[in-house]
Design a binder for these strands. Structure first.
Lengths: 361, 361
DNA sequence: TTTTCTTATGAGACCGGTCTCAAATGTGAA
DNA sequence: TTCACATTTGAGACCGGTCTCATAAGAAAA
């Protein structure tokens, strides 16, 4: 590997020589610390301009110990949920003069681990992570700098965390479905489960996933629906096979009459699959999804969504983390932001309920 | 501002002492350079593990001069176009063990300048930029490290650049409209123009904007449409006022019967505005947009789009830049990726053409 | 005028790595 | 056995900043 020509950059010493002062003095005015007389300051500044001096932030970080940047590890920047959250983070960061090093875990723990290692080595001052999996969090515990969790809380990890009221949101959304007479309601999520799920929601460590399922089950129980656990479908991420599984679900004899989707990406996939099967929304299937993504308002029918304050989510973690970087040592905070349901046109009374004259509401 | 407790980190010297070798030797095995005997290597590795040594990448960069990271400055990460491109970039970067420092310019030159300054100070090895404005590019010329341009070329800047065949794409899309009998065709873009546009497309420096307009005008000219320049609408970014302008356009007496949108964000805005005005697509207005965004395939009707290879766009610039970082000194390359038009249902024959019995095709 | 305190400047160590150079050790050929 | 050469290791300079501490200069107080 050839070495770049490496233009010899102008250093503090160069400026000092040019301005005929000591390196220490030049450093003081260039670095903006200590006290320097007006005349000398002017001279140094002039010399710096003449030489086109540009500070080397790396060298600065080297001695100060702080790098002035934070690492952000998300599951998938491509997902509009994350890109909006990242936007929130970077807006806040910029206001504090901090910049953001972005890493994509692709929702894989190994990639996450590696990203953490790299970012730590780069001496980031803090880390914002959306943990990919909940089972394997040893690497998160080992993080030596302030850490904040975005969207997904981990009970075992007592750090600043910002999430939304997932359980309640899922409860309300599901209730909206049960009150419309639906009884075969599916919950579809992209999350993958390590191990086998048999209704033991407590074994799910990732708060987002667990809480939503809990909320979903709460609502089902409330409506007297048995065995709702069986209607929870994991692993519906971006893939051919996932889509095939959805098609299978939709074509089965006892296909659900209503579905709650865990994010807008799986919902879009569902939307397409439903259409592919020749089914109609909401005539055959009612649909509600988490995240008020762009597309949900322009489909026919527009989709009822659980609106999460995504930008605020990013903004809040960033604020929490930066506050901590500034020396705040309050005990870790767990912020839960409220969601609202935006009712559109994708929920109708269950065809089954109508057919059988059922009416619970 | 309180100073963080600053856990005294384990350094090469610490490991060396533990392993009872010199700092230089320990550094050699830890840094993976030079030659060390098997036995000593093992001893050092063991000591490192025992002390939980973690390299300080900053210090390493300090001496080597390379930081192992590249800066990426995009207009708006929230825009799915950019988030997908960023995904492409970061995937490639990771393969080369390089990481990405992300900055958002918000399409503002000042923010862009500031981002460049910060990233340069952080000693990024290279920079990928989507220049916000074309008039003001002095700061881009001053960049001391390898630079690559994403999606927008600048004629005055002879650096590696990856764009799509904007002119041809716009030409084909517009032609599709003219061939359907449309004559009042508008081009709507979020780009803002410094100065006044009077058809002098050549004064637009940003290639993407200029080329598309040129292509648009080509097609109009080809169809014998005069004064098409007046149908070009700038500044339709994300804002209330922009939306108001669109509504006004759609409600005017001589509203266009077809519209070409420069990106999926303005197209979505247009879609909503069209609906708001009680107009139908494609009955009253035909619509084509750049970027095959998620939502375009699920609306009723689905939208005909110019499909840009967005991920590949990001992938390519990153590859170009990284190749350059490795010492490649070929002359700058300008890669133009092909686009394809995905025909869906948003284009119909012009109502005017039908009414007047016109038929040019 | 002399003493004391404040303020401005300079000299040089330091951060945690890399890397050059020389010394020490080992190996094979003469 | 002796010499030439290769290999392994150690000492210390260096990267470009920050920062401590001592000194010099200036101002105020005695």
């Amino acid at each position: 590997m050839k070495r770049a020509p490496k233009a010899p950059s102008i250093t503090v010493s160069d400026v000092a020589r040019e301005a005929k002062v000591s390196k220490a003095t030049a450093a003081r005015v260039l670095g903006g610390y200590g006290r320097v007389s007006k005349t000398v300051r002017a001279a140094v500044l002039e010399a710096a301009k003449a030489l086109d001096y540009r500070p080397n932030e790396l060298a600065r970080s080297m001695t100060t110990g702080r790098s002035g940047s934070i690492g952000v590890i998300v599951g998938d920047i491509e997902n509009p949920f994350f890109s909006l959250a990242v936007r929130g983070i970077s807006d806040v960061a910029r206001l504090s003069g901090i910049n953001v090093i972005l890493a994509n875990s692709g929702e894989e723990v190994e990639a996450e681990k590696s990203a953490i290692r790299v970012l730590m080595a780069k001496q980031v001052d803090g880390l914002i992570v959306t943990p990919a999996q909940s089972g394997d969090i040893a690497h998160l515990k080992e993080i030596a700098c302030p850490l904040a969790l975005l969207d997904r809380a981990l009970p075992e990890l007592d750090v600043d965390t910002v999430t939304v009221d997932d359980r309640n949101a899922a409860l309300r959304a599901t209730r909206m479905l049960t009150q419309a007479g639906h009884r075969r309601i599916a919950y579809v999520t992209a999350a993958v489960l390590s191990g086998d799920f048999r209704g033991a929601a407590s074994m799910i460590n990732t708060s987002t996933v667990r809480e939503r399922i809990l909320g979903f089950l709460d609502a089902c129980r409330e409506a007297g629906i048995d065995g709702a656990e069986r209607n929870i479908h994991f692993g519906s991420g971006r893939s051919e096979s996932a889509h095939a599984v959805l098609l299978q679900l939709l074509r089965s004899a006892d296909r659900p009459t209503a579905i709650l989707a865990s994010d807008s990406v799986v919902a879009l996939d569902l939307f397409k699959a439903i259409r592919e099967c020749g089914l109609g929304i909401p005539r055959d299937i009612s649909l509600i999804t988490f995240h008020d993504a762009d597309w949900t308002s322009v489909t026919t029918p527009p989709i009822t969504v659980i609106d999460q304050p995504v930008y605020a989510l990013g903004k809040s973690v960033a604020e929490l983390l930066i506050r901590r970087l500034k020396g705040d040592d309050r005990p870790p905070e767990r912020i839960v932001l409220p969601t609202t349901i935006i009712e559109r046109m994708s929920v109708a009374r269950s065809p089954a309920a109508i057919g059988q004259g059922l009416n619970r509401s």
